[in-house]
Every structure is written in structure tokens, then in C-alpha cells.
Simulated scan of single mutants.
Amino acid sequence: MYTLDVDASTPYRVHIGTFLLERVGAIAREAAGGRRAVIVTDSNVGPLYAAPVKTGLEEAGYETGVFTFEAGERSKRAQTYISILEYLASRELTRTDVVVALGGGVVGDVAGFAAATYMRGCRLVQVPTSLLAMVDSSVGGKTAIDLDAGKNLAGAFWQPSAVVADVGCLATLEPAQFADGCGEVVKHAAIADADLFAELERTPLTLDLLMRDVERTALLIARNIDIKRAVVAADERESGVRKLLNFGHSIGHAVEACDRYRTGHGTCVAIGMVAIARAAAARGACPA
């Protein structure tokens, strides 16, 4: 297992490894405290992983509930967000209790926004289950929902108390889902680590590599998180250097919207990186 500490306004630790789902309760107990917990998950992830996380939370002394919504970007809207808030209220969560976001980027964003605003902010533990969520959206404190006018237009900066990335969860992804998450992996390498970029060129991060070498995959994920945590520590609220993390995103978000969110976020970011890099080269801002 690897651990990385994020030096944000609310410091927290990221845990990366295998067989960590069962330890979410113990990690939450140490990092967040509280008496009640609600797991927020979606219809794809919940049937796979909610049970061991719930068991671990209960063993750690939490009175635990589970809220599940329909998987997909279309659920990252105000209706889902309000439904989560109503469920938290029905479970009588307080400000010192815990929301556990179990799933990919959509789950982390909408559950995080609910945690940021319920009773003006309660504790949050991010448990990312997709590659994209592990290397990017679970770390850094950005939470949001989509509006008709665009993606992530309503949200808040809200740092978690802990992040738990169980690399074993990636084994249940489809190859296309895993490849989609690699868009953010390549982005981190492009903006901050030429050696990592060259390594990915030589040996691409694939689902097959995960199956053959879990330890190397976990290390690659940790290296990505290390890049992001350094940027977040330098500029938590995106007033300067953190804008580097948006490489490819302006065009990528436009592609997502035009495609009605049928193409994955990481793939759209990859399209955006290619387009903006070609434009920069054409203008002489970088070599071909």
C-alpha cells in the first residue's frame, strides 16, 4: 500500500493499494470520526462494492445507510443532489458525520457536493472505483453538478477527510472504461513529468498490465496522485498553477456536451489535449 498526504486547507491522506474496501470503516473512523455514515453510490458500483464497505463501516461503529442512484453523467444533476440531501436528513446525519462517496467521477462529484452543503458541510471520504476517479477527481476537493448550460457549473471546493483507492476495483472495469481513465493519466504526465510520459509511451497503462502487475499499476496511480497533490497544495482554489490541470478540458467539455455525454470524460480530455496541442504548435507556442 502507498500513502500520500495532501497539504490542503484540510490536510488528508490518500491510501492506494489492494484489499482496502474492507478498511474504509477503520480509515474513516481515524480520519473523520462521527457516529453515522451514508454510502452514496450508483447502480453499477453499488451491487459490486457497497456490501463490504458497509460491513467495514458498521464494524468501525458507524450506523450506516446506503443511497444509490442511476449510473451515468445524466444523474449528475440537481435532482440527484437534492435526493441525496433529503436522504442524509432522513438518516439524521449531523455535521460531524460522514458521507462515503463510493464510485467513479460522477459519484464523487455529486456526493462531494452534497457533503459540502449538507448542514453547511459534513465529513467526506472518497472511495474511487474507476481509474479516472483514482488519479484525478477524488483528490483536490472539487465537487459539482451539471446545469443545462454546461458541465460542473454548480459546485464547491470541499476537501475530503480521506481518500481510499482500492486498485482491485479496476479489475471489474471494461477495457474501454479503463482506457478512458488513461486520458487523465497522460494529462498529468504531459503537464508535469516527462519521464512518466516516456514510460507510458514505452509501456502503456492498460487493463492487461493491471492483471499482470498490480503493484506497478498501483505505483503509476500513486505517481499521478503525487502530481495532482503537489499542484493542489500550491493552488487549492485554482487561481494560478492549478489551471494546468485543465489541459485539454475546455475543448474536452465541449466535445462531451456536443456528444450528449455518451463519450467518456477522459477520452474527451484526450481529444481536447490533441486539439489544443496542435493549435499551439501551429501558432509557434510549442514544437511539433
Rank of each mutant, 00 (worst) to 15 (best):
D208L: 13
D235W: 04
A218C: 02
E199C: 08
D180G: 02
D213Q: 10
R237I: 09
L210Q: 02
P204F: 07
F247R: 05
A190H: 02
L196M: 13
I225R: 04
L207G: 02
E256H: 12
V231E: 04
E201G: 13
T203Q: 12
E238N: 11
I221D: 02
D235G: 01
E256I: 08
D213E: 08
E215P: 03
H249Y: 06
E256R: 11
V185R: 03
D195G: 12
A230V: 14
E201C: 15
F197A: 13
A189W: 00
C182D: 08
A189V: 06
E201D: 14
R223Y: 01
F197L: 14
T203A: 09
E184W: 03
I221C: 00
A222Y: 10
E184F: 10
L219I: 02
A189L: 03
L205H: 10
D226I: 04
A233M: 00
V185Y: 01
V232Y: 11
A190W: 04
D213S: 00
A198E: 14
I227V: 14
L244S: 10
G240Y: 10
T217N: 00
R223E: 06
V186A: 11
R202H: 09
D195H: 12
I191W: 03
I191Y: 05
G240N: 06
C182P: 01
T203H: 09
I225F: 02
L245V: 00
V255I: 15
D195E: 15
E236G: 05
L196Y: 10
H253G: 11
V214R: 13
A194R: 14
D193P: 06
R237K: 15
G183H: 08
V255N: 11
C182M: 12
A222H: 09
T217L: 10
C182K: 06
K243A: 15
D226M: 03
R202V: 10
I225K: 08
R202L: 11
E201Q: 14
F247C: 08
D235P: 02
D235M: 11
L207S: 13
I227L: 01
E238C: 07
A218I: 04
S250V: 14
V185K: 08
R202P: 04
N224I: 10
L196F: 10
T203N: 03
A233Q: 06
C182E: 12
E215N: 05
I191V: 07
R216A: 13
D208K: 14
H249P: 06
E184S: 07
A222T: 13
P204M: 07
A230I: 13
L200D: 00
M211T: 15
V232A: 13
V241N: 01
R223W: 08
A234I: 03
A233V: 03
A233N: 04
N246R: 06
E199V: 01
I221M: 01
A194N: 08
L207E: 00
V241G: 07
R223P: 08
V232E: 12
H253R: 05
T203P: 00
I227C: 07
L200R: 00
S239Y: 14
D193T: 06
A190Y: 08
L207C: 05
A192I: 05
F247Q: 02
E199L: 06
A194S: 13
E215I: 07
D193C: 01
F247W: 11
K228R: 11
K187N: 00
A194E: 15
I221W: 06
T203L: 12
